[in-house]
Amino acid sequence: MKRLHFDYTMQIHYSEPVSTCHYTIKCIPPDTDRQRLEKTEITLSAKEDPGRSRDSFGNQILYGRVEGDHTDFSFHIAGDVSVNRTACESKGKEAMLGLFRYPHGLAVPGEELAAYYRTLKLTGSAYEKGAALMHRLYQDYAYEKNVTDIHTTAEEAWRLGRGVCQDYAHIMIALARLEGIPARYVCGMLVGEGYSHAWAELLCENGWYAFDPTNNLVVTDSHIKLGVGRDAGDCEINRGVMHGGGIQTQQISVSVTEKG
């Protein structure tokens, strides 16, 4: 077990006033077998307190609306999380597993990814297959920023041959599902990184193990989980719908540090 401190700030500036804005924020680390949220502090630029809820995947939601002309919107969530309390998360509700077995959204494989899958010839336990998949992906896929975006599918990212953590995670999920292993997308934060991160969880013999194919490591004590779902779309950190606003500029700063 280890204690981490995190700090997530998002600031949005609009070039023209927004008259009404609706927001949904999924940025609170959930309590799981592996991690526990010990302290949090939430600040929003919205005057009214946000509503709180949970989506079907258990992700915590803050939501609300901001009325009256404004040109800035921001939120700041900070806290302490103890991580690596166990090696894996328990299987969870049986009835939900199908959700992570079927191709969905951005993690749907196409012909080229399926062809790559056939070359993998995975063997062993689900955990061993997961680890092998992660190593192969780390070797066969290149990290490069700004060549893909949040709407890029696993197949598109694979054809391109390079991308970022979201693409690694989608490709890994698509491949694991082809192998019959339930797999889910995780959005979160990583010690030392200045932005959010993404990885994959695979249901292995003892429970859900987290694999970070971008860094080629099995997640232990340096990651904080924020959201989980079938693909990145299920765990969008922030969604906003607004009237007006012109051009938006968004600034995100994330920091995760070890606490003594």
């Binding site: 989506d55 079907s56 995947f57 049986e94 009835a95 939900m96 199908g98 959700l99 077995r101 079927y102 779902g229 079938r230 299920d234």
Partner: peptide
């Protein structure tokens, strides 16, 4: 589904199935 009356393909691969409704 668990009792094998309806195959899960007809749930999870159906365009009408909405994960957002789980547990609601």
């Amino acid at each position: 589904v668990k009792d094998g009356v309806v195959p899960e393909d007809f749930i999870f691969a159906s365009s009408g199935y909405m994960a957002e409704c789980e547990g609601v």
